[in-house]
Nucleic acid binder design. Sequence first.
DNA 1: CTGAAAGCGCTTACAG
DNA 2: CTGAAAGCGCTTACAG
Lengths: 340, 340
Amino acid sequence: MVTLKDVAKRAGVGLATASRVIRESGSVSVETAERVRAAIVDLQYRPSSIGRAMARRSLDALGIFVPDYADTDVRCILEAASREARVANRIMFVTGSRSDGPVGPEAIAAVQELLDRDCDGILVVAQNLEESDLGKIASMFEKVVFIDRPFAGNPDAAFHVAHQIGGRLAAEHLWSFGHRHFAFVTDSLLVWSNAAKLEGFRAEIFGRGAARESIEVFESAPSYQGGCESAIRILETGFGGTAVFCSDDSMAAGVAAGLRIGGVSVPDEISVVGYGDSYAARYCSPPLTTVAVPAAEVAQQAVRSLLRRCYGIQCVTEREFSPCLVRRESSSSTKSDRGS
Amino acid sequence: MVTLKDVAKRAGVGLATASRVIRESGSVSVETAERVRAAIVDLQYRPSSIGRAMARRSLDALGIFVPDYADTDVRCILEAASREARVANRIMFVTGSRSDGPVGPEAIAAVQELLDRDCDGILVVAQNLEESDLGKIASMFEKVVFIDRPFAGNPDAAFHVAHQIGGRLAAEHLWSFGHRHFAFVTDSLLVWSNAAKLEGFRAEIFGRGAARESIEVFESAPSYQGGCESAIRILETGFGGTAVFCSDDSMAAGVAAGLRIGGVSVPDEISVVGYGDSYAARYCSPPLTTVAVPAAEVAQQAVRSLLRRCYGIQCVTEREFSPCLVRRESSSSTKSDRGS
DNA sequence: CTGAAAGCGCTTACAG
DNA sequence: CTGAAAGCGCTTACAG
């Protein structure tokens, strides 16, 4: 392996000088620099990032933990995060769950591994984590940023979409179409984002004077299958409403299918609104009205804030991320009262 | 920062001994080991991976280049790759394209960066690269493995699905339903996987005695939109066939939609078969018959082969990855000759 | 502008 | 079983 020492010897200079021309720091005379550069080319020298890391005590690396690659947003997050790091001349370590066990312990183990790897900062995709998990992680290491979930213990360390606004948008949209009685379909209200969507939805609906009973909640698995099952339960319970808001597009696609199976037409009899603007929303039939979410921007800003904290790199960082409504064909104005 | 030296001093032993008990290598008396462990706990010592990397001249890290996160398989690939690396106690650096420019130069630049980071081995998701790009990359570094594309320059360094078989499966399926005249819709035959799908499709169809004209090729953008446009062109050219095979599910979903817009029913008048078994296939209407692909296994085996080459870690590695047909509702037996 | 030297935190023959 | 020492490839005061 060719080292700096070889370069210095070849160029007839000291180690320090050779280092200076490579780092382009400090002052070196033009001729000396020229000689060093020639030596580098001759020897095909490549600096060792390990040696540099040793001396500087940093790998210039960030780490990211991704609990669930199946999630729609993860693609955007990873892409935006690795790009943002690269632009700042940092590299990104990725790590995921090892098993399908509870995500809290997985996240903690992963963060520990990332720390053992001497990352300067860590990003945690935290959508399925609980406040207490975030607390534990934050106590392990100071330079952590959470994505897709707020952190009461340190709000500045969390970047996430304002899902309450997403819920409001869906409510507003359905209300304006004349709907007054709703079902909310979700996988679990223990997941922060789902609770936030419902919170916003409720705030908007109740704010317009509707009664508490006008929103019924149904829970099932976070999948097409789960949505289908919810639809069946909705029909079985004699649901008298005209609109279903789902916390996830796959579920919404399943709900639409399940309703159709049950003989209910979408959107003529029941409108369905999804969330996420994923493939499921675009390709299902009818294409879903849904709430689109700026996942990439969230990740980008999260990385930037980490870069600032780790390296003092200054860049503008936004903190507000609002979703927006995408109108498609699964929602329409109420045609008839389904007679409840 | 607490270092090994601190631990050794505290335990009253030499550096070498402390190192031995941490690495659990070499022989150390039970009592000594006990004292060292106590010191580690007392001081909350965490070994520095940078120090270790310096001494061992390896970060125990692999790198992966992902050209396009939008690709369906990428999720599986990243998940499988990072998991497989982690199981072997290695970490994974991720890097993607910086721009939307040509992927060849992007890949080369990324590999160079990964090398500069002292990765021990590199994975390249190579679906959109050309043989010459792979050649250049292979000449930069020996320990590279390509995913999703064969490499004539070194077949053992490439792991990919046998898309020819995927093409055959689609052909077999459609043929058995009585179809004899086809359209193949793709974004570009310059992409290896697309060419392979068509090659397999043709081999099967021609092998059954069909004429060359029985397969017409249409090219458009690799998206729903593109598929839609292809469908319109197919109808405009007075296509007399009864089946469309697409190199990609999104395009197939678009084709189905486009045909419907053109007044042609799917699958009653024209059958559509997609490729990839992505969300688009599951959620579009009608759900698409498609070819499912073992993307995760390909990535897993690619990582394993790299682990073997970089660290001599032995594990069974498969080299054959066959897709399989998923029958859904977009294909059926020919009802009528569309009179060509 | 330049270079010798110390130091970053480990591992690993080697000698005892 | 144990420890002093050399070495991994850089960076960076410091003195000249």
